[in-house]
Design a protein around this nucleic acid. Structure first.
Lengths: 206, 206
DNA sequence: ACCGCCTCTTGACACAGATCAAGGACGCCC
DNA sequence: GGGCGTCCTTGATCTGTGTCAAGAGGCGGT
């Protein structure tokens, strides 16, 4: 389920993106979409005042930009390589044409888009009716093996995590401390030991 | 582009939903999705404390629930008829099977899902980095003909609009007044005259 | 016309989280 | 080791928005 039809895959052109470069930019016409091969990409939006919201972060195997490319129109967000990244670039029109003759590929992209809708819906819900504390708890739970006691090692900078959670780094810092004071976690740099997974899950609101 | 393949359409079963009844409920297994024929449906989520966020509102011609049904799993939101509503109900597995042999239908659903992703992404951005004032300005602009001066008549109660914008009705009330004080609009009950569309658009942040 | 119900408005207040401003910790390079 | 840049933390303060409480206005029913 994580690989599209190989005849589709062969339509992709492999490209390299040094850390910091943009795969696409908000406002540009969306003719192509991408599949990350190695590295990582963050998708974000900046407002006039420079405040920034990270919509999602993608790693190897993930697709990005496919929704805009299929719908036609302009990218609503920026996509930036966070490390040296390689990605397959697809022309949306070519892929749509190929899909017409490959039912399996159609189904693949339908499920891909459907899952992306669910992802976005989940983030919407988090942002709309959860506090920073709850969102953080949820993030930690999601990245924990589910054991009673486990250690989450952040793969990203705390400032980046803050923007991913839709908050400021200062607030994230304070919230981490608060969870620690409450005996739920123990923070040692980028290493976070979850002392009580069950209780943390309650904090997260399931 | 707004109609699926007729062979797909014929898979739907027409059902009636009195005002207030649920088409589906958060947590239920998603086997089917819907297309509104007449009436209106709001999709929302309630948290433990009773706070509520309206994710989207659908009218005649719109699909809902298709993302969850295609991805498999449980509905993350509730869907409720806001007035007496008729809707076609589709079994997701049947439709997926039909799609395999109808390339046009595949393309239809891909574009449908893609547009839904864009819709959700837009709402995410609004909620994440816009103030209530900006979101309201944006809503008014979107529902205005684009003329220099025009009148928007709210089709929904102000309390409902508030939840759609992700805020409380009291705050909406105050914000409307504020825009009026600033000379951007004139409010007379559910009728809102936009005095300066261009300036309002600036407020909205394009 | 009176009453009850519902929606909307307004005021007072509380609080989460953003912002501003200093440090402090750590790594890296010369 | 000293200096410098980046990231993180902490404190003080400000602001938007939610919440609670009390009317105000409209509308239908009797």
């Amino acid at each position: 389920m994580s690989r599209p039809d190989s005849s589709i895959e062969s339509l992709g052109i492999l490209r390299g993106y040094p850390s910091g470069t943009l795969l696409f930019q908000a406002g540009a016409l969306a003719a192509e979409f991408f599949r990350v091969v190695s590295g990582g990409v963050r998708v974000y939006k900046t407002d006039e005042q420079g405040r920034e919201l990270e919509v999602a972060r993608f790693g190897p195997g993930d697709f990005l930009g496919e929704a805009v490319a299929f719908a036609g129109g302009r990218y609503p967000f920026n996509a930036q390589a966070v490390v040296q990244t390689r990605a397959l670039s697809f022309n949306a029109a070519h892929v749509l044409r190929a899909i017409e003759t490959h039912p399996g590929a159609a189904r693949f992209f339908i499920e891909l888009l459907a899952r992306k809708c669910l992802l976005l819906g989940g983030r919407l819900e988090s942002l709309g009716l959860r506090t920073v504390r709850q969102r953080l708890a949820r993030y930690l739970c999601a990245n924990c093996a589910g054991e009673q006691v486990c250690v989450v090692t952040l793969g990203i900078k705390k400032g980046e995590l803050a923007r991913l959670l839709g908050t400021a780094s200062e607030t994230l810092s304070r919230t981490l401390r608060q969870l620690q004071t409450d005996g739920l976690i123990e923070v040692r740099g980028p290493r976070i030991r979850i002392k009580d997974c069950a209780r943390l899950r309650v904090e997260a609101g399931e």
